[in-house]
């Protein structure tokens, strides 16, 4: 029997909200722990996850988030947060604070530290060229683990044979 190729997974992170930063981190870390090769491509708002100036300030806005209920604040049941209230000043910061607290309780590391764990575990991180150009960013703007700025075509080449997950 021919020797099996190692399984490969590639994530495309296109969102910059705090809640949307975690799926690739959690799954990528699980993949590395199980011997699967991991590549992560950051594009559009996902660039915030690797932007040094933004990575520690990701937020979760309650507006237009119908799944966010008051039980996050300890109110029993599934009572919603009225949308007009979600728009009040400080509500995004408040929701973000709550999520940070929940994550901390579960011993989930902050995004910057999580990314470093992934890089140390062998994950390869890349930034999308078009987003870099659009947002006027440079390689120096990114956290250390980002290997390069690549085009969509490059990404297709480097993920040959990989399972691709778009987030």
């Amino acid at each position: 029997m021919a020797k099996e190729q190692p399984r490969k997974i590639a994530f495309i992170c296109s969102k910059g909200n705090l809640d949307m930063a975690y799926p690739a981190l959690v799954m990528g870390w699980a993949a590395l722990g199980n011997g699967i090769e991991v590549t992560i491509f950051f594009t559009f708002w996902g660039m915030d996850m690797i932007n040094k100036a933004r990575v520690d300030h990701l937020e979760i806005p309650p507006v237009a988030n119908s799944s966010m209920k008051m039980n996050l604040m300890g109110v029993p049941g599934y009572i919603g947060i009225p949308q007009f209230m979600g728009a009040f000043p400080g509500m995004t910061a408040f929701a973000t604070h709550l999520m940070h607290k929940k994550m901390e309780d579960l011993k989930v590391p902050p995004v910057r530290e999580y990314l470093q764990m992934l890089v140390d575990g062998g994950a390869k991180l890349f930034a999308c060229k078009m987003s870099v150009d659009m947002m006027g960013l440079k390689k120096e703007d990114f956290i250390d683990g980002v290997q390069d700025i690549v085009t969509a075509g490059d990404f297709m080449d480097m993920t040959d044979g990989a399972q691709i997950i778009f987030i």
Binding site: P6, L32, G33, N34, G35, D120
Partner: peptide
């Protein structure tokens, strides 16, 4: 983390 992955390569968990 680096050392752990070097000691038990390809799937330390």
């Amino acid at each position: 983390t680096k050392d752990l992955f070097a000691l038990f390569p390809k799937g330390p968990a």
